[in-house]
């Protein structure tokens, strides 16, 4: 595997995202929704900030999920559809390198968009509250980046198994579903009788727990940082699942008939 070739492939993916203007549309939407909300006068009381954090972070999460999944889902299928995959593979580049390059490109692009969102968030809430960056926010951003990487890997794998629209739908449902219900699975498994508890236990064990990466409540309510051990465990968890998804994607793409 050559790093140079992988980076060359990923550079194209980054350019593609910013050329498609999805990010700009999302950015403008975040601004259009957040700025008027931050200007509302609540009973003449100034300096209220937590609701802005809540709404802005929700928007950032929603748009990051949409941008990540839609961008990653069209990386390889797009090349196949446009038939640009053939000249690409005729070059001295392996299929594994192509998948990893596409994954890295999609990840860099989504992460770039995410960081722009967070920069806006910091400015918006900083102006309101006069407090800019907290360590909890930095941890939150780091975990959100891990989430984006993980979702990218999952979607790239999905894009090799399903049609683009089916992949986008499935990835959106799985991601949002796990974010909402993931934390309740252990309780459900413990409270149910067989065979429901066994099924829930298997699901709970196999799925990537995306809710681990959601530190919004801590950021909104100034609840401080996550224990450093847990923080690094979650990062390692993301790394493990990402490498599994990317390895599977490489394996599938190597056997795929184009």
């Amino acid at each position: 595997m050559s790093l140079k070739r992988i980076l060359a492939v990923s550079r194209v993916s980054i350019l593609e995202l910013f050329r498609r203007r999805d990010v700009y549309a999302a950015l403008i939407l975040v601004l259009v929704l957040s700025i008027p909300l931050s200007c509302i006068n609540f009973f003449g009381v100034e300096g209220i900030v937590r609701y802005i954090r809540e709404i802005s972070l929700l928007l950032i999460w929603v748009f990051s999920i949409i941008i990540t999944i839609t961008n990653a889902a069209r990386q390889i299928p797009g090349e196949i559809q446009r038939r640009t995959i053939y000249p690409l593979l005729s070059k001295p580049i392996g299929r594994g390198e192509l998948v990893i390059g596409k994954f890295l490109g999609a990840t860099a692009a989504s992460t770039g968009a995410l960081l722009i969102f967070y920069a806006l968030f910091i400015v918006l809430t900083g102006i309101k509250s006069q407090s800019w960056i907290s360590s909890a926010l930095l941890q939150g951003i780091a975990l959100h980046v891990c989430f984006v990487i993980l979702v990218n890997a999952m979607t790239i794998l999905g894009s090799l198994l399903l049609t683009p629209s089916a992949n986008i739908t499935c990835c959106l449902l799985v991601t949002v579903g796990i974010l909402i219900f993931g934390a309740q699975l252990p309780e459900t498994a413990a409270a149910s009788a067989a065979p429901v508890n066994i099924i829930t236990w298997v699901v709970n064990t196999v799925i990537p727990h995306f809710e681990f990466f959601d530190m919004r409540l801590r950021i909104i309510h100034n609840r401080g940082t996550v224990n450093i051990g847990v923080f690094f465990t979650v990062i390692a968890y993301a790394a493990l699942y990402t490498s599994v998804f990317v390895s599977l994607a490489v394996a599938v793409f190597k056997r795929k008939r184009i």
Partner: peptide, 21 residues
């Protein structure tokens, strides 16, 4: 009912408790 004390379930709960205040 009797709590499932399997390692993975306990671990997931622990992480979630730490992440969510």
């Amino acid at each position: 009912p009797e709590k499932d004390t399997s390692f993975f379930i306990g671990w997931v709960e622990q992480i979630n408790k730490e992440i969510r205040p």
